[in-house]
């Protein structure tokens, strides 16, 4: 194990554990962001420059910000007076069992020798494959994102109150 990988693994796992166990929910969101930055750095080390940057752009720039924004909007950022866990023991046991199973499988498995050179990730080739072989999934994802955009806006609209002015009309 190389030192950079160990450091990054520590950052990712430490951030993830802190994110799911922090009492303060805003801290959870920030730890999640730290963990995902670590993951993006692992992507960079794997040679996927493009995806590492996309990872930070989407997760740190959008998802983490949305999460902390939602935490603030639901207004219980400052009420830590509760048991943090629902059924802590059984949940952690299930997760540990799953990890043991996965690790067992990984350790028993014997992959072939890894390729020596880091494979290139040319963005042009990625786009070519996306628009030739994966057109249908691409369209589906585009539809999904559009639906999510509209759906999120509709769901989060305040419920119309009788007698209130139409939501589209600015108040004068």
């Amino acid at each position: 194990m190389t030192l950079p990988f160990a450091l990054l693994a520590g950052l990712i796992l430490g951030g993830a554990i802190a994110a799911v166990s922090a009492r303060n929910r805003v801290h959870s969101g920030l730890f999640l962001a730290a963990s995902l930055v670590g993951l993006a750095l692992v992507f960079l080390r794997l040679g996927a420059e493009f995806l590492g940057f996309i990872q930070i752009l989407v997760y740190v720039g959008a998802v983490a910000v949305l999460i902390v924004f939602a935490i603030l909007l639901t207004r219980d950022a400052d009420s830590p007076r509760e048991r943090i866990a629902n059924a802590p023991v059984s949940g952690i046991l299930i997760a540990l069992a799953l990890f043991a199973l996965l690790a067992w499988g990984v350790l028993l498995w014997n992959p072939g020798p890894p390729p020596a050179a880091i494979p290139a990730l040319p963005v042009k080739a990625l786009g070519d494959r996306l628009l030739r072989d994966y057109v249908l999934p691409l369209q589906a994802v585009g539809l999904l994102l559009t639906a999510a955009l509209i759906g999120a806006a509709v769901i989060a609209l305040p419920p119309p109150r009788p007698g209130a002015p139409d939501a589209g009309e600015p108040k004068r």
Partner: peptide, 15 residues
């Protein structure tokens, strides 16, 4: 990925 890098660091300010 030059432009992507630029946009990526731009979003980090939000946090």
């Amino acid at each position: 990925t030059g432009l992507l890098f630029f946009l990526m660091v731009g979003t980090a300010v939000e946090l």
